[in-house]
Amino acid sequence: MSDLVERLKAPLKEGLIDVKASRGRRVFVRVRRESFRDAVSHIISGIGVRHLSAITGVDMGGEIELLYHFAYNSVVLTLGVSVPKGSPTMPTVTDLVPGAVFYEREAHEFLGAVFEGHPDLSPLLLPEGWPEGVYPLRKENDYNKLHETELRKV
């Protein structure tokens, strides 16, 4: 596990913000947005991780944090990157991990993250006619507000 972190640290240098391990087999690594693509390519080609379990978006207030959960044998390596809510753009990873296609779409639909280069960011889960720009998992949209949301006629 510590070996895994060392193998990430070397190539990322200043791009790395924080590393923590909640227990032996769960590692959280936070990187700067500029270094994100390099980190993903390194995880895949350098370390040899093949499986992306999911992408989780978290509303952090002024920012949206995107967590990419990579499974590597017994370890889940979570790569975190923050984007400002005002311009939540991220490069897509679908060219590196084709399996990310629906996870990015979900993060777009529920938190408004925009993945540049993604083939299709059309709605996947929310009802037809759901208004654009209302992202249910953002904290400013509380349950009552979402309940009042009116669907467009389609």
Binding site: S22, R23, R26, F28, S53, A54, T56, V58, L67, H69, A71, V76, T78
Partner: peptide, 19 residues
């Protein structure tokens, strides 16, 4: 705190993230 939990459900890897 935060963590990732995984189990092998009948249909495959099930993953939960909790913060």
């Amino acid at each position: 705190n935060e963590t990732v939990s995984r189990v092998e459900a009948p249909r495959g890897e099930l993953m939960h993230y909790a913060k």
